[in-house]
Design a binder for these strands. Structure first.
Length: 276
DNA sequence: AAATGACGCAACCGCCAACTC
DNA sequence: CGAGTTGGCGGTTGCGTCATT
């Protein structure tokens, strides 16, 4: 596979005292405090003030992907979310940030990771099931051969679509299209800004750890990012459930699906141990 | 029981558009 | 207006963990 070189960087990197690698809880706390005071901006000032030895980019990324309130961290994509991503990817291509805009509590990184996992899985299955390479049985050692980027994007999509029609439950680890637990729409309007705020679902562990009960408070002091945005978001969700947008495509998608049992052997269900 | 592979995910990188001075 | 800086984005990587052989 691609385990070529192990780049042992992490922890810190002597060049310029820039710290890299996993974030510590204390660093998170510093970052969160900065956002509380100044809002989610001026990322590079965090370093210039000596608060953290992280680059502005790194700080922003950490906030956007992990520390922001109302992220669905550690929660698997629901079947509806999966279908949303698949459908929107077909519409927009790999515009992960744009797609994430339609999914509350999901970041572009989440969407990107979801998609690339899915692509790998589909590719692998394609390889082990295509007549030419299947060799009678799933010897699965079939060198996954990740196409290095530049490969045909459109044909990737086509492959995926084909696979979807052939093997619908590849779409999801968790459930059949029949049990859509989330009947409440998770769509929002396409033009809303990057940050996605949702109803309180589960308080983020980091936030709750440092004893910050009020998410609104996080933004209270940031002018262009404050409660008006919250209000806008909520009204969009409460008042304007956007159901029409993808309903047709998704429905026709689902309607095309053969019985899911057909491919049950391919897609293992997640072990309950994973649910924590 | 150990080795290998698959998977999920956090975080990095480079590119470049938007912004600032 | 132009050069420099910031930060948004997509692609990629490396690692930990779980599953399979």
């Amino acid at each position: 596979m691609m385990e070529g070189r192990k780049r042992i960087v992490h922890h810190h990197d002597e060049m310029g005292d820039i710290k890299k690698g996993p974030w510590k809880a204390e660093e998170d706390e510093v970052l969160i405090n900065h956002v509380k005071k100044y809002g989610p901006r001026d990322w590079s000032s965090i370093r210039s003030k000596g608060l953290l030895q992280r680059t502005g980019k790194s700080c922003r990324l950490r906030w956007v992907n992990k520390l922001r309130p109302n992220l669905k961290n550690g929660v698997k994509f629901s079947a509806e979310e999966e279908r949303t991503v698949i459908d929107l990817q077909a519409q927009f291509g790999n515009k992960w940030a744009k797609i994430a805009t339609y999914l509350h509590g999901r970041t572009d990184n989440d969407v990107k990771n979801f998609w690339s996992s899915r692509q790998k899985r589909l590719k692998r299955i394609l390889q082990s099931s295509t007549p030419s390479s299947s060799k009678s049985h799933k010897n699965s050692k079939e060198a996954p051969k990740l196409s290095s980027s530049t490969e045909e994007e459109s044909s990737n999509i086509d492959d995926s679509e084909t696979m979807i029609k052939m093997m619908p439950n590849l779409l999801s680890y968790e459930e059949s299209p029949l049990q859509l637990d989330e009947s409440k729409s998770s769509f929002s309007f396409p033009e809303i800004p990057q940050l996605q705020l949702d109803f309180p679902l589960e308080s983020h562990d980091i936030i709750s750890r440092i004893g910050d009960p009020s998410f609104d408070d996080v933004f209270a002091n940031s002018s262009d990012f404050g409660s008006s945005f919250f209000a806008h978001e909520r009204s969009c969700q409460i008042g304007g459930k956007v159901e029409s947008l993808d309903a047709v495509t998704l429905d026709s998608f689902i309607d095309d699906f053969p019985p899911i049992e057909t491919f049950d052997h391919i897609e293992p269900l997640p072990s309950p141990s994973e649910w924590s």
